[in-house]
Simulated assay, not measured.
Amino acid sequence: MKQNFTVRHGALDGVEAFLSVARHRNFRKAAAELGVTPSAISQAVRTLEARIGAALFTRTTRSVGLTEAGERFFSRARPAFEELIAASEVARDLGKRPTGLLRLSVPPAVMPILLEPLIASFCQAYPEIELEIVASGELVDLAAEGFDAGIRMGELVAVDMVAVRLTPPFPLVVVGSPDYLRRRPKPERIEDLRHHACLRLRRSNGSVAPWRFAKGNKAIEAIVTGPLIAHDYPTLLAAAIQGAGLAQVPSPIAGSAIADGRLETLLSAFAVTSPGIFLYYPERHQVLPKLRAFIDHIRRQGDTEVSRKPLPGRRA
């Protein structure tokens, strides 16, 4: 049968006083070390002895010694208390300066356009931070999985997260290679996509994402078909460059391929705009210095203007 164990209220009261007296074998020296009166030390020790149910010291007018119970308590309590103090110092250090392990959940598509250019400079600027990047398209539970923060497109960030903008808004573009477009006529309308090989993205929840468009003020989701379903945008982009079909991808990841002619943009008049890419993390009263350092470094090093603005309905 499972038992529930709890630490009694005040279980550590008097332990520091006891340890100081035990080290000095003197109540006055212990009081001076802790910055309290000798009577306060005596009271703390008496309360501890009453709670334990055994005398810990033998006292005379000239000396202070440990009882057998006191010796055993001292041998076990001293290393435990020292470890507790060390743990407090480590935690306090993490709250004061950029240090420790910084774990980020990042989609693969973001790596080449946002993170790869600044990883080396961040590691050099903050050598006491261990940066761990888990590249995955899964929408993980940051707290449950032990992540400090995640990076996602704005529409995928939950409303209870604090969101920090990393890029301006950008369109989702339909692209195709010149080779593919020599074999099939360019689509002029959304309806024309039914005659094309459309490369599709499978979401982390298992569903295949429709292609999204805007026609005036109307949002349109188009159910398309094609020869390839992938779990990330870089795979779709590579397949489109090779002529496997059309792909709908965030414009930043297709920028270089469009600029050098490997891809052409299509249906631009119907492109829908994503809010952009955001770093997000659970609401806390204080952002740890290691995460603050990373956010600030992205702002300083990023090629695009970065401003800390919340998504509509989200906290900054």
Rank of each mutant, 00 (worst) to 15 (best):
K2P: 14
Q3Y: 15
V7G: 06
G14Q: 03
S20D: 14
R23D: 10
N26H: 12
K29P: 00
A32C: 09
A32T: 12
E33G: 00
L34P: 01
L48D: 02
E49H: 02
E49N: 03
A54T: 01
T60D: 08
R62L: 11
V64W: 03
T67C: 09
A69H: 14
A77W: 02
E82G: 00
E83V: 03
E83K: 09
I85F: 04
E89G: 03
A91Y: 07
D93A: 15
G95D: 15
G100H: 08
L102V: 03
L118P: 00
L118F: 10
S121V: 03
Y126I: 05
E128K: 05
I129N: 02
L131I: 09
L131E: 08
E132C: 08
I151D: 07
R152Y: 13
M161G: 03
T167E: 07
P169L: 12
V174W: 02
P178K: 04
P185D: 11
E191R: 12
E191F: 10
E191I: 06
E191L: 12
L193F: 07
H196G: 01
L199I: 01
R200Y: 10
P210A: 13
K215C: 08
G216Q: 01
K218L: 15
A219N: 10
G226Q: 07
L236S: 04
A238R: 15
G245Y: 11
G255M: 05
A257D: 11
E264N: 10
L267Y: 08
S268K: 10
F270D: 04
V272W: 09
S274T: 08
P275I: 09
I277W: 01
Y280H: 12
K290H: 15
F294H: 03
Q301E: 13
R315E: 09
